[in-house]
């Protein structure tokens, strides 16, 4: 396997090699972020890297290495499936983390969920007090 340095095969191999190494480095970045970031929400930020960009680079490397056209739609379907499922699970995990208070509040710059939560709590409290008034 000693390709001609000017041929097209050489450049395709080079691109796919770069894609594979960068995709692997995304996983390493996620692991370092998991180990070093202080709370759940910032760890979720790091965890997204291999799931979306890393998988995209590795699937592109597969497509370049196979050197056929029909494989690209299959890879795109696999990647789009990942794109659809990752935000849903991240949303669920983030919401559960917010509710169980696994976050450092002093690290937040904006908290748009707190207004909604307080509004809901006030509504529940109002309904409770009005219910008590009718009972007595």
């Amino acid at each position: 396997m000693s390709p001609d340095p000017t041929g097209l095969d050489f450049w395709i191999d080079l691109f796919s090699a770069v894609f594979m190494v960068v995709g692997a480095v995304m996983s390493l970045g996620a692991a370092i972020g998991l180990l070093r970031f202080p709370d759940l929400l910032s760890r979720m930020h790091a965890a997204t890297k291999p799931q979306v960009l890393g998988l995209f680079l590795l699937l592109a490397a597969i497509g370049l290495q196979m050197r056929t056209w029909w494989v690209w739609p299959v890879l795109v379907v696999a990647w789009i499936f990942q794109l659809l499922t990752v935000p849903v699970s991240a949303h669920m995990v983030g919401r559960a983390g917010y509710r169980t208070k696994h976050l450092h509040r002093e690290l937040l710059t904006a908290d748009e969920l707190e207004a909604v939560v307080q509004k809901a709590a006030a509504k529940t409290a109002r309904e409770d007090s009005s219910g008590d008034g009718q009972l007595h």
Binding site: S27, A31, A47, P50, G54, S89
Partner: peptide, 17 residues
């Protein structure tokens, strides 16, 4: 759970390579 998700992503990446 988040770390297990990342571990699965790493496994998928290794299969892709």
């Amino acid at each position: 759970v988040l770390a297990a998700d990342v571990l699965l992503a790493i496994l998928g990446g290794a299969l892709c390579v």
